[in-house]
Design a protein around this nucleic acid. Structure first.
Length: 311
DNA sequence: CGGCATACCTGCAAGC
DNA sequence: TGCTTGCAGGTATGCC
């Protein structure tokens, strides 16, 4: 599930259970996810208090306060394609959970692909589940976690003040790569994935296969399209976060609730359905090996896509 | 460096 | 029904 809105939804779901609380112990049930777990991972986290749970792009950043004789640490987490967290009340919290309105997750049994379990102070269990194991957890320098190689090269944070037409023009000026591929490149703008790139380009009325250079004029100033795109990215992400993200393929949020932004998709996974703006059928094409959904009527300029033209 | 394909891994739906 | 195929929200890597 995880593009920026889904990761932010996860962060908000986990924060009340994890921030300010101590990790009593950590169960790590396999040696690796996408990458091997760091040396002594479980032992290094056990006993630490989680000072903060932050997000950068699609990454979660867990800041830990050290135990006696051990300095502060930070953990970088990524959900990959299929990672999710689930919060459960442990035995110690069962009693409290019976009170009306108390937090309680409907699922309580261990499931397949539960790879990591955080046993939290207060009795909550936070379980990381990831069937495809494209996610990962690595440790970073607590003093400067953003200098970690995974985070150092990330581009514009789209929910921050940085997202402006001028910055888009600056980052994409002169690029021949398609808008679709450019927006998926986390080194330029970070946090968008296949869904929200498709949706943002539709909102902005920009063709996915137009070169990224259309966002800047010859002098490097932002075009009207850049202005529309900046607003489109901001609006689609903000609305998606407010909706609790998008829930696809049975993924659920950490608190057991479902995101509902998927009901708002204009084009993503809607091939053949009418474009909400003009009614033309939504089309699908493959770019860089991934599906792009778009409205050929609304999204211009659209260079020829290799279709044969009659003379 | 830019641009593209491939690899990683499992589950699911569609097609035969 | 059962098998095969293709596709899925991600990033890293290696090749031209």
């Amino acid at each position: 599930m995880p593009e920026l809105p889904e990761v932010e939804t996860v962060r908000r779901g986990l924060a009340p259970v994890m921030e300010g609380r101590r990790i009593l112990s950590l169960e790590v049930r396999r040696p690796d996810l996408r990458f091997p777990f760091p040396e002594g991972f479980a032992a290094r986290l056990a006993g630490c208090r989680i000072a903060a749970l932050d997000r950068r792009a699609k990454y979660l950043l867990m800041r830990l306060e050290g135990r006696e004789g051990q300095g502060p640490q930070a953990v970088i987490l990524h959900l990959g394609m299929s990672g999710s967290f689930r919060i459960e009340t442990g035995a110690a919290a069962q009693e409290a959970a019976r009170s009306p309105g108390a937090f309680h997750h409907p699922r309580a049994k261990a499931a397949a692909h539960d790879h990591v379990v955080f046993h939290m102070e207060g009795g909550m269990r936070v379980t990381y589940n990831d069937p495809r194991r494209f996610g990962f957890m690595v440790m970073a320098d607590a003093a400067d976690p953003f200098s970690h190689p995974l985070l150092a090269g990330l581009g514009i944070e789209p929910l921050g003040n940085e997202l402006a037409p001028e910055r888009l023009a600056q980052v994409f000026a002169g690029r021949s790569v398609s808008l679709k591929a450019a927006l998926l490149d986390q080194k330029r703008i970070a946090g968008l994935g296949n869904i929200y790139v498709c949706e943002a380009l539709w909102r902005a009325g920009l063709a996915p296969d137009a070169p990224a250079s259309v966002l800047a004029d010859a002098a490097g100033r932002p075009t009207a399209g850049a202005a529309r795109l900046a607003e489109a990215i901001r609006s689609v992400l903000t609305e998606a976060v407010a909706a609790g993200g998008s829930t696809l393929r049975d993924h659920i949020q950490a608190d057991g609730s479902l995101g509902y932004f998927q009901h708002t998709f204009a084009v993503y996974d809607r091939e053949g359905a009418p474009c909400p703006r003009c009614g033309a059928p939504v089309e699908r094409m493959v770019q860089n090996g991934r599906s792009t959904f778009f409205c050929a009527a609304c999204q211009r300029p659209a260079p020829a896509r290799g279709k044969k033209r009659r003379p």
